[in-house]
Write a protein that binds this DNA or RNA. Structure first.
Lengths: 340, 340
DNA sequence: GACTGGCACTCGCTACAGTCGAGTGCCAGT
DNA sequence: ACTGGCACTCGACTGTAGCGAGTGCCAGTC
């Protein structure tokens, strides 16, 4: 596969021009805009090779070339450096995130910030409960047979759920229940909770056992499984930039995919430590998104990861800039979380 | 203005046909599909009058007629009966909403249900805090200088917020604080709270006063004002039905508007008892939405209203059907809330 | 052997002309 | 007051032609 330096340079130039202009780029305009030091004819020969190797393609004969997903992949992997953020951008991030009062606020600000900076659709996962530790469990009696369970995680995340008890439970028993669950569960990771919760039921006095059983079910089923992941979304209007040229004319599949939490989680929820993941077009497992690219990364206090965030846009996107922004925002959010 | 019965019938027929076919409707096809008992020529004369009065218009000469916003308005006000729901729809509503475990769940299911039934964008406002009463306030110490305030409203709504205290507050004091705020505030409507909260601060013992002051600020500012309204959205993908013919080619303004909570609240948050509000095209105050129509109503347990819900779609929508669905869903949700 | 200039070719885009037909407005007749 | 008939309008579609950006290839040059 003879891809010498110049051919790579040509590919890079094609990607950059196409991203900037949104139009197929021809050999002539290429040599004009970039000082490649060779003639259009030479570039054409290089292009022919690049096309044969599947890095670029012609929308139709007699048009310029457009990068393929594979071309973008090569560009991202080998031809681009992550752009350092401009001071203005750094300031924007700080200004936007300073003053957040709690986790909800942090997440909302973050997702809007990301959408604004990248001019794309932004997705932020709340800190995953599976990766959080229990800080406190509060039981609030609503009536004699109803409890509101409030769980506060060390990541700042708060989940609540109404519990229908099998029978009336007096106030004193609620206090006992609260003490028991907190003694047992505070400090433990929720993903490791099941055996602990089971133990709680086993060890409970006969009087408390029925209530505790219900409670434990709710803790496991609802708080952990159902609500496990939460997601915030912003910037869908950015999908309409590029006037329907991106996304081959229809936003429908994209919008549909964005409505599915499961899909979004798949996109940004599988973050690995200190990696920025870039999925380009077809690499995406979700059919509806094969015309889109996703840049995502994990975030969390210090070097741990508690959740993912990222953006989704057309394959024709400014990868270096987007990657830089996503990383920077993730880092800032991590710092913010570390302060709590 | 001489709009006799037949002219109204013609208008109704035009609206119905246009909604169904999405194509300008001509005099001939009109008399064919509806048995008006007159000839196309007569219908044409009627159409000329309707056009003069501003109820319909021609996209271009030699095309059929299309209803104007004003035409839809007349149709909705005087020419349509609210369609009764089909048994299948009723069953769908019940099946969808039964089994909701708490408010969050109810709201999410409702908004998805609405989007699915109407095939439009659905918006559901959480029960407004201003219209809720405080059921319980819980203070959870996170550290010696930090409290998590959890407010549970009688509508099932739960809001929480982290409070940074001016100085360390021992556990016993937290208990006192909790007792005091609950004694004073439980059962009161949040919109009437400010004087009560002020009294709390005034009456607090000197030892508790600083903490109480901070707490009261948070209660008022953050819980009530900032988080006052919450909104759930679903079905944005439905905007792409009708292939860009609706919304004059660009979804951008619509998507932008849907990202603004304030805008959404304006749309569905100003519900009046037992009224269904229909805003058609230009009637909408928000510029971005002048190509859209909104059908909204209030919901709540019994005859009280605690929040609004509705749908947004093209002006070319099935008003009778949509109105019926929105009302029915609102009623079911109200019943669901009443059970709690 | 690598690059270049030149040339023939492809093909999408635009403009233009012509036809078709749905739909209209009007008018005379019942 | 309604209707049938008729001339007219104008968008949608079709076909043709010219333009030009861009290509592939080849012979020539360093």
């Amino acid at each position: 596969m003879g891809l010498d330096d110049r051919k790579l340079a040509v590919l890079r130039a094609i990607v950059e021009d196409y991203v900037a202009t949104q139009e197929p780029v021809g050999s002539k305009s290429l040599v004009e805009r970039h000082h490649l030091g060779v003639s259009p004819a030479t570039v054409r020969n290089d292009m022919a090779v690049l096309e044969e190797e599947g890095y670029i393609r012609q929308p139709h004969t007699s048009a310029g070339r457009v990068p393929t997903d594979r071309g973008y992949r090569l560009f991202v992997d080998r031809l681009s450096r992550v752009k350092p953020l401009s001071p203005a951008e750094r300031r924007a991030i700080e200004r936007f995130l300073v003053g957040a009062v709690d986790l909800d606020d942090v997440v909302h600000r973050t997702v809007r910030l990301l959408a604004q900076l990248t001019r794309q659709v932004a997705v932020v996962q709340y800190p995953s409960l599976a990766r959080s530790k229990v800080r406190h469990l509060e039981l609030v009696p609503i009536s004699t047979t109803r409890l509101m369970v409030v769980m506060i995680a060390d990541t700042g995340r708060v989940e609540q759920r109404l519990v229908e008890l099998p029978g009336p439970v007096p106030a004193d028993d609620v206090i006992d229940l609260r003490r028991l669950v907190n003694e047992k569960l505070v400090g433990s990771r929720l993903s490791e909770t099941p055996p602990l919760v089971q133990a709680l039921v086993d060890e409970a006095s006969p009087r408390l056992r029925p209530a505790m059983a219900t409670l434990s079910t709710v803790l496991l089923e609802t708080l952990v499984e159902r609500h496990e992941e939460r997601i915030a979304l912003a910037g869908t209007a950015n999908l309409t930039r590029g006037g329907l040229l991106d996304f081959q004319g229809s936003l429908r599949p994209i919008l549909e995919a964005l409505e599915e939490e499961v899909v979004l989680l798949k996109l940004i929820g599988e973050a690995e430590p200190s990696t920025t993941r870039v999925l380009i077009g077809d690499e995406n497992e979700i059919d509806n998104l094969r015309a889109a690219s996703v840049v995502s990364t994990g975030y969390g206090p210090g070097s741990t990861i508690v959740g993912g965030l990222g953006v989704l846009g057309p394959t024709r996107m400014d990868y270096p800039g987007t990657i830089a922004t996503v990383r920077a925002v993730a880092r800032y959010v991590g710092e913010l979380l570390a302060q709590n």
